[in-house]
Design a protein around this nucleic acid. Structure first.
Lengths: 212, 212, 212, 212
DNA sequence: TATGAATGAGTCTTCATTCAT
DNA sequence: TATGAATGAAGACTCATTCAT
């Protein structure tokens, strides 16, 4: 039976639930212990620190998320559906596991700990690669404009739409501002194509080509 | 002379700096006092509580930000430039005042206090109104497709690009998921226009029109 | 062996000693911890709050006191001795545990907490019932004037002699003043009987009967 | 006009009101200043410390009280009425100025300050002298049993009924316990006279005389 | 494997008091 | 005479972590 779940599982379950609801700092180990119906010190038998417990909790959810994402994208045949999956699922996932993943994957510089920062970078990387793959697929289908640099595009989309990360501490201000500039132009173009009247589209397009 | 800055200013300055670097919970009043070279209790002479100090700090920066934003948008003549300002400035501002404003304006459910939540909603509201105005301006210029609902569009852009807010606690899950769905379709359209090969654009466009 | 007393006991002991000496507000948890030779936070392991510690300390002493009182009164055969016990023991006890019990049982409006107020009312109740029983015993022995209302008499004696309680916040001023009036007359009578010359006693007695 | 009251008066007024309502420790100078519509530091212009302000406030009320008491007692002709005044007025006064005077005149050892203790002793002294005078008056009228020691009796009545003071720190435990014993016997006698059936009174009286 | 007991370092907050003006 | 500004010391309470068993 699954009636008797291991204590480690009980702890993780409670931790995810509470971190989600209250965030890292506002969740105490006392509360987790109470919710898991175990003694507080038992947590230290399974996890070396509160930090670590938090990261393990995130890993758990992240793996689950990526697993779903890969499956869904593989299952869709058409480029548009793959792209749609890529955009829809993260938001849905974050919505359901907020703010746990939000803290990892959104524009919050996780002040707290280096390990978490690393995790986040890892996830960003995987997201970038995934979107780049989708783009390449679109190109191979002859739908996507080959001139668009897949990697560059993926980075920007992830930064703007999904997991904004202009604040990675390592980079210096100038470098970031330059990238903001670059991405910004691309972003405005994307938006313009979507909202301009069709007949004016051409002109704007040309204008931008001259600029960019 | 302003050579000698008032202590209130010194406190606010230090608070903004530290809240930005470490976040609310991880910044202690001791640190702020040390940084401002005043006694900790002096903080309580000027601000009734840590919470209040945080909110005042945010207000300070937010007013400054909106002021800049309005000025820049008014200064630009063409629709595209106005839109460009609207997209560029918030990011720049957040980048410079992270996570202070980030906490107000990004996808972080501020667990801590109602006052902050209200502030955030106020700021969202102002951002929505501003973008809607820009869109209407675009329409009046004959550039923007009249069929696009300015308000609806503004909400979505702000949620996705600028100040994501799918987690406003009042709303129930179903309502939010429905809106996610709606926005998602619009978002995919916007993207597709930007990256598809020109000759395929028409077909996709038609397909979407039938769907939407 | 009881050579090593539990820490909870050590804390309670120190708390009783210090609360007794300095009162609630003027006794700090630091002092209690120092006196009990434990870390301040250990107090919080055993007691949820300073308030609670205070109340537990009082309960401890109060139970002990009531136990002694019941025993002593049961042990005395004659009505006079029972009454004597009732009057002597509380004072002795309060003297030895002042102001701990004094705060519960004397004329101090305990501004601090409702729980304490409740405790005090409970103790008053028990004192009233006890004295009423003694009075009834005196009547059953044919010593006490049946016309004296045992309950009314007990209330008054407790208010004046033992656990004054004219300030119970619930009651309104008028009600209290009326009761003061009533009790006062009875009190003057009691005194007069004790100090007047025997031959004048009769007149005063008659006069009061007419009045009361 | 009395429209413009001096600031000193305003402070005292507010202090009395607030000390009465909240007690010494729970009343802050901030509150007093706010209530008196003056700056906090102004209090220090008129009173050297919070302690001193408290004592002056008590003096104010105490003088008023004694003045009323003297007048009322002088105004009554008969011994019984004088005694009645003596018993009634303190309670009424304390009831109206609780816990300010209660703190001075009841069984609360004022942990806080020596000055207050001295004040209290002074007031006790005055009360004792007053009651002794009344007793002597009763004797001169031929109503009161000459065998009763006026001073001794006054002390006891004040301790039991009015301003209990068995805890005067100077005295040692043995001395106090001896006095408790002495007073207790007298107290039981007084009570017995008041509640015994008339015909049994004689016997008890005799019994006590043998004992005491 | 699991935990009850214990703690040190830190948190926000209060408040009587001082002092320059 | 009056006060705004400033502060040090203390207070209750929290919490991640350790350790003996």
């Amino acid at each position: 039976m699954t009636a008797v779940i291991g204590k480690r599982e009980r702890i993780l379950e409670a931790a995810i639930e509470l971190f989600n609801r209250w965030g890292f700092t506002k969740t105490s180990l006392d509360e987790i212990a109470r919710a898991a119906h175990i003694a507080k010190s038992t947590i230290y038998y399974y996890f070396p620190s509160k930090e670590n417990l938090f990261i393990v909790a995130i890993e758990e959810k992240a793996e689950e998320f990526f697993c779903n994402l890969y499956t869904a994208i593989d299952a869709s045949e058409r480029f548009e559906d793959k792209l749609s999956c890529f955009l829809r699922l993260p938001i849905t996932c974050i919505f359901e596991n907020m703010p746990l993943l939000a803290m990892t994957m959104q524009q919050i510089p996780p002040d707290y700990f280096t390990d978490l920062l690393e995790k986040r970078n890892e996830y960003r990387q995987r997201m970038n690669e995934l979107l780049a793959e989708i783009m390449d697929y679109g190109k191979s289908q002859g739908i996507i404009n080959e001139k668009i640099n897949s990697e560059h595009f993926s980075e920007m989309i992830n930064d703007w739409f999904i997991m904004g990360d202009y604040w990675n501490k390592g980079d210096n201000k100038n470098k970031i501002l330059k990238r903001l500039e670059r991405d910004h132009n691309l972003m405005v173009q994307l938006l313009l194509y979507g909202i301009l009247k069709r007949d004016t589209t051409q002109k704007v397009e040309e204008k931008k080509r001259i600029k960019g």
